[in-house]
Amino acid sequence: MDKLYVLCVDDQREVLNALTQDLEPFETSLMIEECESVNEAWEVMESIDANGDHVAILITDQVMPANTGVDLLKRAKSDPRFQDTRTVLLTGLATHQDTIDAINTAHLDNYVEKPWSKEGIHQIIKVLTTKYLLSKGIDYNEYTEVLDQQTLFETLRKTT
């Protein structure tokens, strides 16, 4: 079974704790990693990749010291290694321009405003994990508890 990682990036430890707590139900299928800065996140992503594992979902805050979340997303999307990685911007404070940037240049998959709802983030994780599995051609049968059936059906309909 391939290891699928969900990377949470936020400079506020309290937010990270709350977020990972909400993600705990998925921890049997997915690996959760916490990072406090963009640079740290990048290092973690590279090491995950070097181990041959997958950075499936990247959840990042926008406003952080040094580099912003959108910087990270752009960097990830322009790197062939993380082309299929799904991205979520989780923020309480993104300007209009940041958001436009995130969508246009970082091909953002999802925009979530703080405070988030547990159910909402669960649904997003399911949909994005499913999309990631399908785009990578990984056998989704091993990840049934994090699959979004609707997304699965929609995609499988188009294959032969």
């Binding site: 430890r13 990270l16 704790n17 990693e33 916490e34 990072c35 406090e36 740290e40 973690v44």
Partner: peptide, 10 residues
């Protein structure tokens, strides 16, 4: 409190 950075934790 939590004194460990995410890096140390890893």
């Amino acid at each position: 409190g939590q004194q460990v950075s995410s890096e140390d934790a890893r």
